[in-house]
């Protein structure tokens, strides 16, 4: 009910403010939703969730970059950068998730899940890795396209810049978007944290109990990993764009 109302409001706002592109963005959002459910469904069927997620996120970025932003040199570079970062991060995220045991459900969810049997025969560590990869894909695609487009503009205006100068310029652009991205993600997570903080507060939990608990550690580590992802994309996009722009014109 509430979601239907909100969805209609969002559609009206997107179309009235974004015009044709608003319609396109809204359609792509709906398609993303279907693709997301499909990815979730495949994971629930028992396929290796990390592989399904990698393929799924590559599909998402293909779709966001080439359908929404158009196929050109900028989006192609972004696509390659996103894939490289995804693969690098998969290893890193798997390692951290494995050693810190943040997968599965913490004690706060027991009430929510007690109607289910826990015999599901699926690797929960992989599920957590998938969750983190999916939650960062939007942020890294956003950062990557912002850098490659801005750097392309810089190059068009100053074609004499060499590879190193272009790279530095790309890093500077990355720096300027870093703060706002971190900020958006922070508040999105603070919102989810709120329930937890109210809960811990009601239980009068000690600080040491909170930071060692699975639910806090998993939320916290997830936030940091997503932020690490949106930092790693910066130098990789900058290097690839600088290289590609120089190579194609020579």
């Amino acid at each position: 009910m509430i979601n239907t109302i909100l969805c209609i409001i969002l559609a009206i706002l997107m179309i009235s403010i974004g015009g044709k592109r608003g319609i396109k963005s809204f359609i792509s959002l709906c398609l993303n939703f279907i693709l997301l459910i499909f990815t979730f469904y495949l994971i629930a069927c028992g396929f290796n969730s990390v592989i399904v997620t990698l393929l799924g996120t590559i599909m998402f970025s293909y779709f966001i970059l080439f359908y929404v932003n158009g196929r050109n040199i900028k989006t192609k570079i972004s696509f390659v950068s996103v894939i490289i970062v995804l693969i690098l991060l998969t290893f890193f995220i798997s390692l951290i998730t494995y050693i810190s045991k943040i997968s599965g459900f913490g004690e706060e969810s027991l009430e929510e899940i007690n109607m289910f049997s826990y015999n599901v025969n699926i690797n929960m560590t992989n599920i957590t890795v998938s969750l983190i990869l999916i939650s960062l894909i939007g942020a890294i695609v956003d950062a990557s396209i912002a850098i490659s487009s801005a750097l392309y503009e810089v190059y068009e205006n100053n074609p004499n810049l060499n590879r190193y100068e272009l790279f530095i310029s790309g890093m500077n652009i990355g720096k300027s978007i870093l703060g706002t991205t971190t900020n958006t993600l922070l508040f999105a997570y603070l919102a989810e944290f709120m329930t937890l903080i109210v809960w811990f507060n009601g239980l009068n939990s000690s600080f040491s109990y909170i930071i060692n608990s699975k639910v806090f550690a998993s939320e916290f580590i997830k936030i940091i990993l997503v932020n690490i992802g949106s930092i790693t994309i910066i130098p990789i996009t900058a290097i690839l764009t600088a290289n590609k722009l120089k190579n194609t014109k020579e």
């Binding site: 974004g18 396109k24 963005s25 899940i113 599901v120 957590t128 998938s130 969750l131 939007g138």
Partner: peptide, 30 residues
Amino acid sequence: GKDIMGTMINVLFFTYLSGCLPIFVLSLRN
């Protein structure tokens, strides 16, 4: 505005909806 609208909405989309995955898997496998 048109340029940033789509990608920013996407960032939120994945950040929020990814959180449903564990309970989704548990439900469907039940």
